[in-house]
Design a protein around this nucleic acid. Structure first.
Lengths: 142, 142
DNA sequence: AAGCCTGTCAACCGAATGGTTGAATGATAT
DNA sequence: ATATCATTCAACCATTCGGTTGACAGGCTT
């Protein structure tokens, strides 16, 4: 309902109280929930549909959906007696961004950085920040 | 030790029994551990150094380090009586890749996909896969 | 050798997690 | 009106988590 395209972003920014990475990563730390997200990547699913592939009670699956919802990864639209769930990718993007901070460690720059770190470790026993280390996108947290 | 550039990748592939996303995401789902990773982004750190910013016992921090190690995010080199920890970015890259699967949901393609999904949901009550949904990089798991 | 330092281990604790079952809610169908 | 369907809720259970404390194991220092 309402506008579709902007709604996803709008809701993520306004309705959702920006779930912290703790909650998002915790939600992602379960294979069941990740598979649910993957199912939702194929389109809207009801709770029952999300639960169907798993050999657990519906109540258990419902809890998983709630965990995804709490992390802001899923939005629920109660339509009649069924609850329709949709993927809300904002938090996934946040998590992706957070991980992207470490990208230079596994991309080509790795060698350069590795050499720098080794050099630093070798020539000074002081444990200060490496000035050539990448800058964190977030402040202290995360 | 040994070659640096290939070592990181090599070790991740051989030494490490490819920690699953469960473990990696779980490790990331804790602000303390994320801050430790961030510290390690600045270079090698001993367990004591990693523990220092936190108001918890050394034993508690040590457990966090162990969680990171179990997830393959950290490698430990016991040097004398100190344990030197280094960032092992492979699992971070895996997690990043996994999240990248959902990228089209938050990038420009979002609108197109959103319209497609809504159309599918509207015109068929069957809950089959959306043929235009992105393909998962992994098989069934996650 | 004695003592200190770094770090882990083991036992314990309270809270959270992930699952179950059975009852309750509410919308739909007959 | 009644039965059925989709889903949640509440209570319960075992396990894990994150923290503590105190004892232990090595490595340095003197």
């Amino acid at each position: 309902m309402t506008g579709f395209l902007p709604a996803a972003i709008f809701n993520r920014m306004v309705e959702q109280q920006t779930p912290d990475l703790d909650t998002v990563f915790h939600a992602l730390g379960d294979a069941t929930r990740r598979r649910m997200l993957r199912a939702l990547a194929g389109g809207e699913r009801t709770v029952g549909q999300l639960a169907e592939p798993f050999e657990m009670s519906l109540a258990a699956a419902s809890k998983h959906v709630k965990a995804l919802e709490k992390a802001g990864l899923v939005r629920r639209e109660v339509r009649g007696r069924t609850h329709l769930c949709r993927l809300e990718p904002g938090p996934l993007a946040s998590a992706h961004d957070w991980l992207g901070f470490y990208e230079r460690f596994w991309t080509g720059r790795l060698d350069v950085l590795d050499a720098l770190l080794r050099q630093e470790a070798a020539e000074s026993s002081a444990t200060r920040e490496n000035p050539s280390a990448p800058q964190s996108p977030e402040g202290d947290e995360s």
